[in-house]
Amino acid sequence: MHQVEATVNGATRRAEVSPETTLLSTLRDSWGLTGSKLGCDVGDCGACTVLVDGLSVNSCLLLAVQVNGREVVTIEGLGGFEYLHRLQTAFERLSSFQCGFCAPGMIISAKALLDENPAPTEPEIREALAGNLCRCTGYTKVIDAITEICRDRAVAVEAPA
């Protein structure tokens, strides 16, 4: 067994795991953070996407032992029921998700994009979400929501202080 200690959504978390335990299992089973989902289990669907040291990764393809000492952000770190991240507000306004299973990963990928590029073009948004599959095929409203945020921000920047 290995000891893992990581900063998860701003708080220090510890777990004792066997080597083959994925980060996704540890998030869900040891730390009760069930927002990240197991979809394909091979890094194709992106439902398990989390940020590790600010970069989006598939937590089903990362061993828990690999995040020892690193910083992890999951969907639970973005906002809760009473407090929404502005990305979540936009996704809510457009009701961007149907079954919702892809939502946590999709939102984390969108956050990773906006952290790096505050004003992405639509092709850039599509490229950034290429690793997140939605089987209900509701991509349009996901892209619309991100576009809307960027437009709102552009307006805010142009407006006189």
Partner: peptide, 9 residues
């Protein structure tokens, strides 16, 4: 290569 997540890892 892959999606963003794959390229990051």
């Amino acid at each position: 290569i892959g999606g963003v997540q794959t390229r990051n890892m």
